[in-house]
């Protein structure tokens, strides 16, 4: 899979001289950070409950008579299921932290990121942040029927950029995406790699305060992977705190100074990468 390729690429590009700092579990920041140790994100006993619609049970069979019987018997809306995705997570992230979040599929990693970004309301507990954390992802705002040009403008506005910022960044986005004259064609005509490159170029055009990176982010050919990896490093330097969700543990080990292991919506372990990854792998 392309994502896996990216993460592999990231690990191959490891800079041996850029050894990630290894602080204690409380998450002290590297000494050269402007405001070392100041909390940027505090997650306090966070619970996230999703409501999922359309998940009819096997007994339901989704026919009208059964649905009516349900209502008559006052069993509530049958197609609605509640998913308790995050169950009481607490931690403090500090300035200069690059925190990797690991865990199996469905352990609540992406949900946690969205909650930190302030996009999913907590069921219980709260998330305190310094400034507005942003999720690196703009895909949902783009329309595949539109040209790359229009999508760049639309995506930039969706991320909250001003018209002057969009003008400034436009050429850079086109150049970074490397899609050339295809920018004038609808995105539906792009190959999957080209689409991913443009999306990543748009998403990464904005300067972020607290940056949240979900792994399903960048794909593309070898060249672009290197470019996007450099861009992620650059963004990590610019942002005060970075959260990174990835399945490829090498990337986490190389990029992060702290790792949180989520298991079934709860923190199973929180500490320096070597300890946590060793436990996760065993």
């Amino acid at each position: 899979m392309a994502v896996a390729e990216l993460t592999k690429e990231l690990s191959q590009m490891a800079h041996p001289h850029e050894q990630a700092p290894q602080p204690d579990a409380a998450g002290a920041a590297p000494a050269d950070a402007p405001e070392p140790g100041a909390p940027t994100v505090i997650v306090d006993d966070l619970h996230i409950v999703y409501r999922v619609y359309g998940a009819a049970s096997a007994a339901e069979k989704g026919n009208a008579a059964n649905a009516l019987m349900r209502i008559v018997r006052r069993q509530g809306r049958p197609q609605m299921k509640e998913v308790h995705a995050v169950k009481g997570v607490s931690f403090v992230a500090r300035h200069g932290d690059a925190i990797g979040i690991i865990g199996r599929n469905g352990s609540g990693k992406s949900t946690l990121l969205r909650a930190i970004a302030g996009l999913l309301p907590p069921h219980k507990g709260s998330v305190y942040t310094n400034g507005q954390p942003s999720l690196l992802g703009v895909n949902a705002a783009l329309m595949k029927e539109l040209t790359g040009e229009r999508n760049i403008v639309l995506g930039c506005y969706a991320m909250g950029m001003s018209p002057t910022q969009v003008k400034e960044r436009y050429d850079e986005i086109v150049e970074f995406s490397g899609i050339g004259e295809f920018v004038q064609f609808p995105m539906s005509t792009y190959s999957s790699g080209m689409g991913a490159r443009l999306r990543f170029a748009i998403a990464s055009a904005k300067v972020h305060n607290v940056l949240l990176i979900d792994e399903a982010l960048a794909t593309g050919d070898r060249d672009f992977k290197r470019k996007s990896q450099e861009r992620i490093h650059q963004m990590r330097d610019e942002a005060g705190t970075v959260f990174l969700v990835a399945h490829n543990l090498d990337v986490i080990e190389e990029t992060c100074n702290r790792v949180i292991w989520l298991h079934k919506g709860q923190i199973k372990m929180d500490g320096d990468p070597q300890t946590v990854l060793a436990a996760y792998n065993s």
Binding site: T40, D44, V92, P121, N130
Partner: peptide, 26 residues
Amino acid sequence: RAGGSSPSGKESLSALAERHGLRRAI
């Protein structure tokens, strides 16, 4: 839950957040 199970064990997370001027994300 003041004085609850915060990692620092000294002050509650909400108090810590307040001390550093952090605001609720939502």
